[in-house]
Write a protein that binds this DNA or RNA. Sequence first.
DNA 1: ACCTGAACACCGTTCAAGT
DNA 2: ACCTGAACACCGTTCAAGT
Lengths: 231, 231
Amino acid sequence: MAVKRNGGQGKRPPRVEATAQAGRKPGGEPSLSLERIVATAVELLDAEGIEGLKMRQLADRLGAGVMSLYWHVGNKEEVFDLALDAVFAFLDQPQTDDVEDWRKGVVRMLEDWRAIMLRHPWSASLLPRRALGANILGRLETMSEALSRAGVADADMNVAIWSLWNYVLGATVTRASFALSDADQAAGQERLSALSERYPTIERTRLLLDSDWDGTFRKGLDVLLDGLPRG
Amino acid sequence: MAVKRNGGQGKRPPRVEATAQAGRKPGGEPSLSLERIVATAVELLDAEGIEGLKMRQLADRLGAGVMSLYWHVGNKEEVFDLALDAVFAFLDQPQTDDVEDWRKGVVRMLEDWRAIMLRHPWSASLLPRRALGANILGRLETMSEALSRAGVADADMNVAIWSLWNYVLGATVTRASFALSDADQAAGQERLSALSERYPTIERTRLLLDSDWDGTFRKGLDVLLDGLPRG
DNA sequence: ACCTGAACACCGTTCAAGT
DNA sequence: ACCTGAACACCGTTCAAGT
């Protein structure tokens, strides 16, 4: 599922598929497995955020000793890689082949992408730092195909894909972190008042108070899609 | 210079301006100061990256004990905040008031912004996570003014500013991290070969091999600027 | 094939002082 | 007003075993 596993040296081979008795402990608890580790890591990241993921706590939740994790996983970095790609697994069918409504399809894909990252706010900030996993590449592929059908020439494809990627990533990362750091919204307000003289335009347009994230996202996306060069 | 200082409790007030003998130790070494701390933190971040910044090492470079830092700074987070905003200080004059060439001015500002973040690759990934410092707000203000003069209505300003912000941020964050993680470019190539069947469109358009970052950035930016609603 | 505890190296920060 | 060393709590990971 993941492209690379067991980071670098890997003194021991990771587990092979099913060696017959891989099932569950007598107790009833399913024994450790990559799948369980990754799923629990996602839970933990959702609950505690990106620096709330500790190997010890992860092991605790799994009812195992810390070091047991290291048989399945090379190091903590790998847990991040796997959790990240896991979140981008496809759930629903890739959109229909409706050539007419390429745009609706593309918007749907990008909003889906954004929704996932907002549901797992750690994923947006992790995304650029990590290698692209299979699911992420799959999404880029589906996206490229849709744009290709819509008439975007191969020569323009990189600009198209990267522009959309950049936009979605930037929007989501910003939104996710604003939502978090506005725990101190009080401080934000206070600062904003002191601001009015030095930043009149920001004050006038209420830039920092815009809370219509979805609408603003969609409008900017429309600008981008309108401008894509298509044959 | 920074908007907030001394995080929360702050048992001791931070240093006030000049208390006369604030100069240098007899030895010649300038004594510790917020400015020196921040400047050295930026150096260290440039050299070692975002998780290469350790308080002990920072203190070492400054020829001081670790705990000396904590008189000037509340905690490590604050060092990040200050370093980030420091990097965005204005160096050259804000562009001329040439209303005709608003576009040239805006492009110049955004490319400047991007250049800064590429020069300090840690800054791009830090930017969304931290409160906006004075320099960053100043740049947003200048940007808003330019767009306003160019005919963007106040009602459209948020979409305009956030779209550009998202785009630049996403582009830079992606580019900076690709540059880093392509230390393992070998692995990237190998993966790409195994890919060709499963990701034919990506393979055909050579998405992951596009190295014309500057050109791609500029073209996408043009699409965005073309589409901005202006009165 | 899979799991484990003890131990190490490292790091941010508190504390109680020093000048 | 400014700096400091010792100590604490915590964390990722190595090692040498266990079954």
